[in-house]
């Protein structure tokens, strides 16, 4: 069973989410049609871990690209145009491109891992959240939390509260 509350105003939704957090209720999610920088601050979402993926991916991509060039040149030593076998200027260009390529791909992986997407299972959601309402959802609360959660949501000024059963 999940509980969802719909809000008209951003502040109300944020205060509801904060209240739920303060009450020690887990699995609270705050949904909004647009990114809310205020909410991110309020919920303590600082720098995202995605950046680590980008950095590590880019470094690995750069190293991988350069070593790919060097390895290729050494497997068959084929001089061309009097250039060095390990010629830095062209290899650095390839390194540049692979840095970006692997950086982008690992950022993508980082996005999926950090945002916990794709959603394989169903999660509480209301379509209004993608239009012009803010939705606070509590995913499968324990039986003694239900009342408390509903109280907090209603107290924050929700337009409506809905209980939906199961995980489907």
């Amino acid at each position: 069973m999940d509980i969802t509350g719909t809000f008209q105003y951003e502040e109300d939704a944020i205060s509801a989410a904060q209240g739920l957090h303060a009450a020690g209720i887990k699995n609270v999610s705050l949904m909004s049609p647009i990114p809310m920088h205020a909410a991110e601050k309020a919920l303590g979402l600082g720098k995202s871990n995605v950046r680590k993926f980008t950095l590590i991916g880019a470094i690995l991509g750069g190293l991988g690209g350069f070593s790919m060039c060097v390895a290729t040149a050494l497997v068959f030593i084929m001089p061309t145009g009097g250039r060095a076998i390990i010629a830095l200027p062209p290899y650095l260009l390839i390194t540049y491109e692979t840095t970006i390529l692997i950086g982008v791909l690992s950022t993508l992986v980082g996005f999926f891992l950090v945002a916990k997407l794709p959603a394989w299972k169903n999660r509480p959601y209301r379509v209004e959240a993608n239009v012009n309402r803010f939705v606070v959802a509590v995913e499968s609360p324990s039986s003694n939390e239900v009342k408390k959660a509903e109280q907090i949501i209603r107290g924050a000024g929700a337009l409506g509260i809905e209980q939906t059963g199961g995980t489907l």
């Binding site: 794709p118 959603a119 394989w120 999660r123 959601y125 209301r126 379509v127 209004e128």
Partner: peptide, 15 residues
């Protein structure tokens, strides 16, 4: 029909 009445949308990809 579907938006106003707040029909639940399945967000599960597997589903």
């Amino acid at each position: 029909q579907e938006f106003r009445e707040g029909v639940r949308v399945n967000v599960s990809v597997l589903e």
